[in-house]
Design a protein around this nucleic acid. Structure first.
Length: 466
RNA sequence: GGUGCCAUCGCCAAGUGGUAAGGCCGCAGCCUGCAAAGCUGCUAUCCCCAGUUCAAAUCUGGGUGGCACCUCCA
């Protein structure tokens, strides 16, 4: 398997530290608001990665953190006159529910900042002991970037001298402009946590390093984790700072491989609060089936920037429909789980840095070939057996085609309408039997008014939502 | 201003030295009472210029045009 390492900027053969085992850490959400499509993309990408790693025989330990200490959370809690726990529980639960609808499996570990404070204290103390951190008169603790010769190597950045000077002047007690807070002292009575360094709140970058050390790192390995992932924007400063903390405060290098997913834009513009164009996942799920969103968002390579628009989504849905139509053709037959060349090719494509386009092309070609064969006379016993196995593999490794195919095509149609449609179809069948095609076509138009199209097959008349 | 990424058919999108995958849309046909679905066939020489090479979408240099990060952000 190969992975594009966004720090070394090259595709590398993936070799875990411990044979057969992979540790993966991904920066998860700060739970102060609803998840948007960008969160969905990230969760989907790393969900796919874990599935492909598992299909390659690896035992994967996947951790994705929940940031539940944050100034934005506190602000929201104060505004709503609620506790931060009420806020974070609400959004954490919503996140899990919504990602579940996209077919994202829960990671093995979902550590929370509030439950990792001890690990953070330990790391801060180490950094103080090693002279990589310092306390200010205000009671803050900062990481001393000048003490780390490797600083900025991760994100390949060069520091501008002018900028350096300016920032130091404006912000009082830091030694260097790039220094970042490990612990922020709180004296104004707002929400804080007790610590050996006084009451305060942890710096954002700190929690990931501390959690990784606590949950994933092993004492005798060079790297704390095999793979570290997150959104492309996190490379600097977040991952740069994480890496510095771990390098200077533990015996580990933070990660062997770095993976960064591209951004989701909406109709060509970056999602942002100020533009008012955030597309929340909960709203998207009201309009689109979760699996359609999964298919669409995963349909473009994870490193590319993704431009969300409804036309592309509709085209994408048609592609997923083809998987389900084939499932309809084979409905009721059971899978014997045999090995096929298709499976090998699919895994090979996905193992090449998650080459989804090549994978989808393989799927389309497989479907097309099977349909062609099924259109000819014969029982096609082996073909059906292999195809069922192939479809099951697509479900397992990509999460496409997991639903009942008839229900899939009826997304968003309520029970009352379904009953009406069934009644109309029966009436139409009678008209068809009597060769009264005028009446039959009239009923078809009536059904079309519900946004539903009919398909007459040898097995009877089926319907799909347009 | 600094750093970096990208530019392939109307649209989405693979391919990183050996002569352009796949999907959507479109056109023609098969099938169908008619449709829908399915199937078959047709549709690009890869932003521009120069260079390296027997050979370049793929490498190098120079343009042009997008985008991202440099502040919280998936």
């Amino acid at each position: 398997m190969t992975i594009y390492d966004s720090v070394q900027k090259t595709k590398r053969e993936f070799i875990p530290q411990e044979k057969g085992k992979v540790s993966l850490y991904v920066c998860g959400p700060t739970v102060y608001d609803d998840a948007h499509l960008g969160h969905a993309k990230s969760a989907l990408v790393f969900d796919l990665l874990t599935k492909v790693l598992k299909a390659n025989g690896y035992d994967v330990t996947y951790a994705r953190n929940i940031t539940d200490i944050d100034d934005k959370i506190i602000k929201k809690a104060n505004e709503a006159n609620k506790s931060i726990k009420e806020i974070t529980d609400f959004y954490t639960s919503a996140y899990d529910t919504e990602m579940g609808k996209l077919g994202v499996l829960r990671p093995n570990l979902e550590p929370k900042a509030t439950e990792s404070l001890e690990a953070m204290f330990e790391l801060i103390q180490k950094l103080l002991d090693n002279n990589h951190a310092y306390k200010t008169a205000d009671g803050d603790v900062y990481f001393d970037t000048s003490s780390d010769s490797q600083y900025l190597k991760l994100s390949h950045r060069v520091q501008n001298e002018d900028e350096k000077r300016q920032r130091v002047e404006s912000s009082s007690q830091k030694k260097n402009s790039a220094d970042f807070a490990l612990w922020k002292s709180v004296k104004d009575g707002t929400i804080s946590f007790p610590s050996p360094f006084g009451d305060g709140r942890p710096g954002w970058h700190l929690e990931c390093s501390a959690m990784i050390e606590k949950h994933l790192a092993k004492p005798d390995t060079k790297f704390a984790v095999d793979i570290h992932g997150g959104g492309a924007d996190l490379l600097f400063p977040h991952h740069e700072n994480e890496a510095a903390q771990t390098r200077c405060g533990t015996s580990h290098v933070l990660a062997n491989y770095w993976m960064h997913n591209g951004f989701v834009n909406i109709d060509g513009e970056k999602m942002s609060k100020s533009l008012g164009n955030s597309f929340f996942l909960k709203d998207a799920l009201k309009i689109y089936d979760g699996e359609v969103l999964r298919f669409y968002l995963l349909g473009t390579h994870y490193r590319s920037n993704f431009n969300f628009n409804e036309e592309d989504l509709a085209a994408s849905k048609k592609r997923l429909d083809k998987i389900y139509r084939l499932k309809k053709r084979l409905f009721g037959l059971s899978n014997e789980n045999v090995q096929t060349p298709f499976k090998d090719e699919l895994l090979k494509a996905l193992s090449d840095d998650l080459n989804i386009s090549a994978s989808l092309a393989l799927i389309d070609e497989m479907i097309s070939h099977v349909n062609e064969m099924l259109d000819t006379a014969g029982k096609h016993k082996e073909l059906k057996r292999d195809t069922l196995s192939n479809l099951a593999y697509i479900e397992e490794i990509l999460g496409f085609g997991v639903k009942n195919p008839f229900e899939y095509f009826q997304f968003g149609v309520d029970e009352e309408t379904k009953a009406k449609i069934d009644t109309l179809i029966k009436k139409r069948d009678e008209a068809k039997k009597a060769k009264d095609f005028a009446a039959s076509d009239k009923i078809r138009d009536e059904i079309l008014a519900f946004g539903v199209i009919l398909m007459d097959t040898a097995q009877g008349t089926f319907w799909e939502r347009v």
